[in-house]
Amino acid sequence: MNDPTCHSPSARCHALLPCAGSGSRAGTTGPKQYESLLGVPMVKHTLAALLAVQRIQHCMVVVSPGDHFLRLDGPRSVVAPCGGATRAHSVFNGLQALREIGAEDDDWVLVHDAARCLVTPAQVNALIDACSHDPVGGLLALKLPDTLKAAARSRVTTTVDRTDKWLAQTPQMFRMGALHAALAAQEGNGFAGVTDEASAMELAGQQPLLVPGSAQNFKVTYPEDFALAEAILKART
């Protein structure tokens, strides 16, 4: 159930970028988040959008131990080499790393995919505005625009009603302590069923708020996505 307990109005916001994955579907020779878009590693486009939101106190990028690719020198950005085998594990470790630099359980954390490099400061601000007084928190999401099919052996079995279906995006914004507790409850089973932060909160009995996002806030996943992302970035300059 949603907890209506009041929280401190002075709670801060932090951003956490899990950046320890390999992106095997992207067809790149190295981690996709380091692929160049307009001459800049993809993750730096992502980070720039988050750092443009002045309400965010810190942006922490969680990388794999031994990954020395990323160098950050700003006062609000930090690299934490504590990435795990899965996204959920990286986020779980990243939350602890945020605590170690002063983040508190009542603070908000916005977890964002490093490969969603087209998010805009306006979208991040809209999420913060929508969630800052919410008892649970929420996520950017997009109403499903297409007809949805269920299949077996590459054959359609049925058309699924899309009326209440949404595509989850990021950032996903929750209280530090609540998200850490939700992930800790699933650590023993290897974070099974935790595909994003909202799913961890759902397993804890919460109902995250859906905040309308944008079709441009897609996750760069497949080889053809790089050209599209680069074209959109170029159009914005």
Rank of each mutant, 00 (worst) to 15 (best):
M1N: 10
P4S: 02
T5D: 11
R12V: 03
H14Y: 00
C19D: 02
C19L: 11
A20W: 02
G21I: 06
G21V: 04
G21E: 07
S22Y: 14
G23Q: 08
A26N: 13
A26K: 02
G27S: 07
G30E: 12
Y34V: 01
S36N: 11
S36L: 12
L37F: 08
L38Q: 10
G39T: 08
V40I: 14
K44S: 15
L47Y: 03
L51W: 05
A52H: 06
C59S: 08
M60K: 06
M60S: 06
V61M: 09
V62Y: 01
V63E: 04
V63A: 06
S64Q: 14
P65K: 11
D67Y: 11
H68D: 09
F69L: 12
F69K: 05
R71L: 12
R71G: 06
L72V: 15
L72G: 01
D73K: 15
G74M: 14
R76C: 07
S77V: 10
V78L: 12
V78R: 11
G83S: 11
T86H: 05
T86W: 07
R87A: 11
R87C: 13
A88Y: 04
A88V: 14
H89M: 14
S90K: 01
N93D: 04
G94L: 03
R99V: 09
E100D: 12
I101T: 11
I101E: 12
A103G: 04
A103E: 05
E104N: 08
D105I: 03
V109I: 10
V111T: 09
V111E: 04
V111P: 02
H112P: 01
H112W: 00
V119D: 11
P121K: 15
Q123S: 14
Q123D: 05
V124S: 03
L127Y: 01
D129V: 04
A130W: 06
A130N: 05
A130R: 04
S132A: 05
H133C: 05
H133Q: 08
P135N: 03
G137F: 00
L139E: 03
A141F: 02
A141G: 09
P145E: 05
K149W: 12
A150G: 11
A150M: 12
A152Q: 14
R155F: 12
R155V: 10
V156L: 11
T158N: 13
T158C: 13
T159L: 05
D161E: 14
R162W: 15
T163N: 13
D164E: 14
D164N: 08
D164Q: 09
W166S: 02
A168S: 09
T170C: 08
P171A: 07
R175E: 00
M176D: 02
M176H: 10
G177S: 08
L179G: 01
H180A: 13
H180M: 07
A182N: 04
A182Y: 01
Q186K: 15
N189L: 08
T195M: 00
D196A: 13
A198C: 12
A198I: 01
L203E: 09
Q207E: 09
P208R: 03
P208L: 01
P208N: 07
P208M: 04
G213T: 01
S214D: 10
A215H: 13
A215I: 07
N217H: 10
N217Q: 12
Y222M: 15
Y222A: 14
P223V: 10
E224C: 15
D225K: 15
F226T: 02
A227Y: 14
A227F: 14
L228E: 06
A229W: 13
E230K: 04
I232Y: 13
K234Q: 08
A235W: 06
T237E: 09
